[in-house]
Simulated assay, not measured.
Amino acid sequence: MYDTTTARRSQAVSTNTLFARTMSFVAATAALFALGAYVGRDFTHGAGFVAFLGAFAALIAMRFTAARSREATVALLGAFGLLMGVAMAPTLVYYATTDPQALWQAGGATALFIGALGSAGYATNRDLSGLARVCFWALLALLLFGVVAIFVRIPHASLIYSVLGLVIFAGFTLFDFQRLRRSQNIASAPLLAASIFLDILNVFLFFLNIFGGRRD
């Protein structure tokens, strides 16, 4: 009885430590994103695209360094957040100039969305790995829809794209927060933080498109 109780307490401590560390990384990544957006406020869309490629490269590199160097993985996570902020700076500046209210609305909606679905994903005992696979293929289909919408006029295509994107990332958010509870590997915190930050960023951009599009 003692051994069982001790094991459960140890698992709870490990889970709580992973949650705290992961969310600390998420907060730090968001802060670096804000810094990058400030630094890149006068950059062109071309410079933003280069920064996006750099952020994507940092994200891929994290997969290779995760099992080798915690310090390198954390540094790459920071670089990812900073470069992504630079990449998004032209878009954020546009909305800040033309429709600042949309930024606040998107931010508030994102906080409620992530808070509700993150809590549900963290609490549920149902295995959501199947949902994650469905969301992955749905995301590929959504990207294809976005490409088609560039060349073919589809009524309300932008709104449809954003709403479907929110549905897909609702699934990813549920899954990522369940992984946060189930994982016992503290070294996975930077990768989990990157996934959750991407969930937050994409949800924010979809809401921004919805709220900003209402005034078009």
Rank of each mutant, 00 (worst) to 15 (best):
Met1Ser: 12
Met1Val: 04
Tyr2Phe: 01
Thr4Tyr: 14
Thr6Glu: 14
Ala7His: 07
Arg8Ser: 06
Arg9Glu: 10
Gln11Lys: 07
Ala12Ile: 04
Thr15Ala: 14
Leu18Val: 04
Arg21Ile: 05
Arg21Trp: 10
Thr22Gln: 13
Met23Asn: 05
Phe25Ala: 11
Val26Gln: 13
Ala30Trp: 08
Phe33Tyr: 13
Ala34Leu: 15
Leu35Ser: 08
Leu35His: 05
Gly36Met: 13
Tyr38Ser: 05
Arg41Gly: 03
Phe43Val: 06
Gly46Thr: 06
Gly46Ala: 13
Ala47Phe: 13
Ala47Asp: 07
Ala47Leu: 14
Phe49Arg: 12
Phe49Ala: 05
Ala51Val: 03
Ala51Asp: 08
Ala57His: 04
Ala57Ile: 09
Ala61Thr: 00
Arg63Glu: 02
Phe64Ile: 01
Thr65Pro: 00
Ala66Cys: 03
Ala67Asp: 05
Ser69Cys: 11
Glu71Cys: 00
Thr73Pro: 02
Ala75Pro: 01
Leu76Ser: 00
Leu76Lys: 04
Leu77Cys: 04
Phe80Asp: 01
Phe80Val: 01
Phe80Glu: 03
Gly81Trp: 03
Met84Thr: 01
Gly85Glu: 11
Gly85Leu: 09
Ala87Val: 03
Met88Gln: 11
Met88Tyr: 07
Met88Trp: 12
Leu92Ile: 05
Val93Gln: 15
Ala96Arg: 10
Asp99Phe: 08
Pro100Phe: 14
Ala102Ser: 14
Gln105His: 12
Gln105Arg: 15
Ala106Ser: 13
Leu112Tyr: 08
Phe113Gly: 00
Phe113Val: 07
Ala116Gln: 09
Ala116Thr: 09
Ala116Asn: 10
Gly118Cys: 11
Ala120Met: 15
Gly121Leu: 15
Tyr122Pro: 01
Asp127Asn: 13
Leu128Gln: 07
Leu128Lys: 11
Ser129Arg: 15
Ser129Pro: 01
Leu131Gln: 02
Leu131His: 02
Ala132Gln: 10
Arg133Trp: 07
Arg133Ile: 02
Arg133Ala: 09
Cys135Gln: 08
Trp137Gln: 02
Ala138Leu: 13
Leu139Pro: 00
Leu139Phe: 05
Leu139Thr: 04
Ala141Gln: 04
Leu143Val: 08
Leu144Gln: 03
Phe145Asn: 01
Val147Asn: 04
Val148Glu: 06
Ala149Leu: 11
Ile150Ser: 03
Arg153His: 05
Pro155Asn: 08
Pro155Met: 11
Pro155Phe: 11
Ala157Gly: 05
Ser158Glu: 14
Ile160Lys: 11
Val163Thr: 07
Val163Met: 14
Val163Tyr: 11
Leu166Met: 11
Ile168Ser: 08
Ile168Thr: 05
Ile168Met: 07
Ala170Arg: 12
Phe172Leu: 12
Phe175Thr: 03
Phe175Gln: 10
Phe177Gly: 07
Gln178Asn: 02
Leu180Cys: 08
Arg182Pro: 01
Gln184Asn: 07
Ile186Asn: 08
Ser188Ala: 12
Pro190Leu: 15
Pro190Val: 03
Leu191Ser: 06
Ala194Gly: 01
Ala194Pro: 02
Phe197Ser: 09
Leu198Asp: 02
Asn202Lys: 09
Phe204Ser: 02
Leu205Phe: 10
Phe206Leu: 12
Phe206His: 10
Leu208Met: 09
Leu208Arg: 15
Phe211Tyr: 13
Phe211Asp: 13
Gly212Val: 09
Arg215Lys: 15
